Computed example of a mutant assay.
Amino acid sequence: MSTGALATLLSQQPFSFTGLKTIGKVAFILDLVLFLTFCILISIRFILEPRALSKSLHHPHESFFFGTFWVSITLILYCIQSYGVPSTGPWLVKTLEVCFWLYAGCVLLVVILPAYPFLVLGRLAAVLECSQPQTSAISIMVGGIVFQGLGWMTAFIMYTIYFTRLINSDLPEESKRPGMYVAVGPAAYTSNTLVALGVQAPKVLPATFLGITSVPTGDLWKAFAVPAGMFLWLLDFWFFALATVSVLWGYKKLHFTLNYWPFIFPNVGLTVALIQTWNVLDSDGTKGVCSAMTVALVIAWIGVAVMNVRAVWRGDVLWPGMDEDMEDMEGHGQKTRPD
Rank of each mutant, 00 (worst) to 15 (best):
A292D: 01
L57T: 07
L57S: 08
W238Q: 15
F65L: 10
F64N: 14
K203I: 00
A188L: 04
N267F: 01
Y78E: 02
V298F: 00
V312A: 11
A196H: 01
F156E: 14
I29N: 06
L6Y: 01
F156L: 15
G89L: 07
K21W: 13
I138W: 03
A228G: 00
F38G: 04
G303F: 08
A155S: 06
P338M: 02
I161D: 04
Y83E: 02
V289P: 09
V204Y: 03
E173G: 10
V306M: 11
A273K: 05
M180F: 09
T154Y: 10
T37M: 05
Q13Y: 04
D170V: 03
T208G: 12
I140T: 04
K222I: 09
G89Q: 15
F237Y: 15
V215P: 11
A296I: 07
W261F: 03
V199K: 11
Q13R: 04
A155R: 06
H255S: 15
N267A: 12
P227V: 08
G315V: 05
V245Y: 14
F263M: 14
W101I: 06
T286Q: 09
H255M: 11
V312K: 09
A311S: 15
L205P: 08
D316T: 06
Q12A: 11
V33D: 03
G89I: 03
V295G: 01
P227A: 12
V120D: 06
T336F: 04
E49N: 10
G4I: 09
E129C: 07
S169W: 01
E97Y: 12
P216S: 10
M293K: 07
V245T: 15
V195Q: 07
V33I: 05
S72Q: 06
T193Q: 04
V298T: 07
P266V: 06
V312W: 00
F263G: 11
C99E: 08
C106P: 13
P206L: 03
L194V: 01
G151A: 08
V304T: 00
M180N: 02
I23R: 11
K222Q: 15
G285P: 00
S291N: 13
N259D: 14
W152A: 15
M153P: 00
L75F: 00
F147W: 05
E173F: 01
L281H: 12
S139M: 07
L270K: 13
Y189Q: 09
T3M: 10
F64W: 10
V226L: 02
L171Y: 03
I157M: 15
T257N: 13
V304P: 01
E129Y: 04
W152K: 13
Y103T: 06
W233T: 05
G198W: 12
W301C: 02
E327K: 14
G333V: 00
V272H: 03
L242G: 13
T244K: 15
L10C: 08
A300M: 13
L30H: 01
P133H: 08
A104E: 12
E324R: 07
G84F: 08
A305E: 07
I157T: 13
A311R: 09
V110E: 08
P90C: 13
L242N: 14
F209Q: 10
T18V: 10
H59Q: 04
L30R: 01
T22P: 01
L96R: 05
I275Q: 13
E129N: 09
T208R: 14
S43L: 04
G303I: 05
Y251T: 05
E129L: 12
T277K: 10
K94C: 01
C99F: 13
